[in-house]
Simulated scan of single mutants.
Amino acid sequence: MTCEKSAFLRLGRFAPTLGVRDIEASCLMYSALFGLEKVFTNGDPVGFMILKKDAAELHLTLQKDHKPERFNVAHLLVSDVDDVHRRCVERNLRIIKRLQDKGYGLRAFVFADLDGNRIDIGQALEG
């Protein structure tokens, strides 16, 4: 079995959904880290939320018994990876992989959010 290309198919929005135990705390954290804004909520109490900034969208779903995966669940390219890293450190978020220049052309690191979800953050290296 091989991966196939499809010349006729265009993709639109593609948004990861993260399970979280405290949806409001996660909203505040992701807003502080990335400037994401809450654009949609569902439920009373809120059990689903959409956060958005620029072309990036993140969906949060309330999962009281959430157990994080042991792999990166999302990858995000940003314009200032050093600033995002600083914000993570200031908030005492666990850094899984340290900030460093990678051989594949990114400066990147991986952190765990409040629920242990592993997020890979990168910025394209110049040149």
Rank of each mutant, 00 (worst) to 15 (best):
V39Y: 04
N92R: 05
M1E: 07
C3M: 12
A124C: 10
L51A: 01
R13Y: 15
L36S: 00
K53R: 12
L18Y: 03
D82M: 04
L18T: 05
D65W: 00
T41P: 04
G116M: 09
C3R: 08
M49C: 14
L11W: 05
A108P: 00
D82K: 06
L36E: 09
Y30G: 05
M29G: 04
T2C: 10
R70F: 15
F40H: 14
K97S: 13
D101T: 08
A108N: 00
G116K: 06
L36I: 02
Q123K: 02
S79V: 05
E90M: 04
I119A: 03
V84H: 02
I96S: 00
L11E: 05
D82Q: 06
K53H: 09
N117M: 08
D115N: 11
Q123V: 01
F48G: 09
R86D: 14
D65N: 00
L93E: 07
K5S: 15
V46C: 15
C27K: 15
Q100I: 10
I121W: 10
R94P: 08
L36A: 05
K38N: 14
E126K: 12
C27N: 13
L28Y: 14
S6R: 10
E4D: 09
G105T: 02
H85P: 00
Q100C: 14
G122M: 07
P16E: 03
G47Q: 12
E69L: 13
L33A: 01
L18Q: 04
I23Q: 07
K52M: 12
V89Y: 07
T17P: 01
R91E: 02
D115E: 05
G103P: 07
H66F: 03
A112P: 13
V46R: 13
E37K: 15
F40A: 13
I121E: 06
L125A: 02
P16R: 01
A74K: 10
A25I: 03
A55L: 01
R87C: 00
A15H: 05
E57A: 12
S31G: 15
Y104N: 02
H75N: 11
L60E: 02
F71E: 03
H75Y: 15
C3F: 14
V89A: 09
V110Y: 12
D54R: 08
S6E: 06
L76M: 06
G103Y: 06
D44G: 08
F71L: 03
I119Y: 01
L9N: 10
I23A: 06
F8W: 09
L62H: 07
I95Q: 08
K102Y: 11
T2E: 15
K5H: 14
